[in-house]
Design a binder for these strands. Structure first.
Lengths: 240, 240
DNA sequence: ACAAAAGTGTTGTACGTACACCCATGA
DNA sequence: TCATGGGTGTACGTACAACACTTTTGT
């Protein structure tokens, strides 16, 4: 077998061809919100209405073309801020989508997923942006339905073995609030007694001496132990 | 906060700017090989010597620029074939690397990792390609040392919860051979008795009626149950 | 017969699950 | 005092690690 030099050794000094594939960065942004008719919280995400072809009028993931002087992480953070007005409490690369036919013109999308705290979200006052219940999405532009499905799968997966759930809560929270996050994401009820022991033994929680006083017995407030690293992203350190 | 239309709604019909970021696809290709001085198998990977700047003379991951009519998966498969002469027995996207300073000119690398069976590898007869022990790599071009570290982390991680190890073995194999794959990747010895029960109870293995006859008691040959899907890539189906 | 690897049995520990039960507060 | 959620105790099943033991071959 012969090796084409141009293949095995990309030459960064060569000029980009005129029909160069373009790089877009999009982000699936998750938060929890109590749907109007439901008593339980659901996963919500913001979408942007397209105002031009292709797929004019359809909803799409927030994103944009990669700026020449901007890292991938920075591009994801930037579009997230422009869509939600927030900094993410969690941000991770999801996948690079590059099927030839995923857009009328060739485009590779590097997709991130993020968590934001619902209590920080400003009102729905950003033009062409609307928050949708992840369980009842309309048909989206491009391959964005697939992308959201994959992001939801990763979210549910990751919530099982890492402590990202605190990305959806304020600094202090009760165990019931934390449990509700897990229940909303996993879509099933968890035993309060067992849940308590699991998170208490994980070493991630620090009990405070404050209590949430509600309609019944006050519940102790906890906060996350920032000393504990996530330690599930391997040797990759985020470079913003 | 105001939304820039160009950011929230990438326009695929717009012409690519002259300084467009270019997309490269590289692949970390793993196999197992018995190092000359060692009695145990080690993880090896092929590297390509760079014959031009930047980093002329250094070794780099095999890869190339993304072809305009080629999906990401296909590009990874293609460069893998050009480097090893093989089709991968396992291929998965690793990560998209896009730090601004990772190359003298802006380049986003979408990196895959793959497994190939060592018994299928033709001789080291491909020009400028050499196989290295992953534990003793030299300094590589660009950020490729980091990339290989991350790929190794993913390999070790994945071997713990999926059945990719068979990607390094021929159709029929003994449990000792399968165990050696795990031991080489994980870097520690496993209890033969417990290992046997684990894989037997997993439902992934089908015993054959053939035996590997060696210096001692013959060992039964097994093959993988192709009916069992990997089921750990979520809703994402490979599109080649 | 013996070495060595194949293969089986047994035991202890850790952990998740199920569920009974007590505690503290607001109404 | 009662209802409700906060919080504790306990028993059971599964999974895995450790390791003693038996079986089957080549030499």
């Amino acid at each position: 077998m012969m090796t084409r030099t141009s293949i095995l050794e990309p030459d960064p000094t060569a000029a980009a061809p005129a029909d160069a594939t373009r790089v877009a960065v999009s982000t699936v942004i998750f938060t929890l919100r109590r749907a109007a008719d439901s008593e339980h919280a659901s996963v919500f995400l913001p979408l942007v209405r397209r105002t031009r072809d292709p797929h004019e009028g359809l909803w799409a993931l927030p994103g944009g073309w990669l700026d020449a002087a901007e890292s991938l992480d920075a591009a994801a953070s930037r579009t997230l801020g422009e869509t939600t007005g927030l900094a993410p409490s969690y941000l991770e690369q999801l996948y690079a989508f590059g099927a030839v036919d995923r857009s009328p013109t060739r485009a590779v999308s590097i997709v991130y997923w993020a968590l934001v705290r619902s209590d920080e979200i400003p009102g729905d006052d950003i033009e062409n942006v609307r928050w949708f219940d992840a369980a009842t999405l309309p048909r989206l532009a491009f391959d964005h339905n697939e992308i959201v499905d994959y992001a939801l799968w990763r979210l549910r997966n990751k919530v099982g073995y890492s402590r990202i759930a605190h990305g959806l809560l304020a600094d202090a929270f009760t165990l019931a609030e934390l449990r509700e996050v897990y229940e909303s994401i996993l879509g099933r009820r968890l035993d309060p007694a067992n849940f308590r022991r699991q998170v208490e033994n994980s070493g991630n929680l620090i009990p405070t001496d404050r209590f949430r006083t509600g309609s019944h017995r006050p519940a102790r407030l906890y906060r996350y132990n920032q000393e504990v690293e996530l330690a599930d992203r391997g040797p990759l350190v985020p470079r913003h």
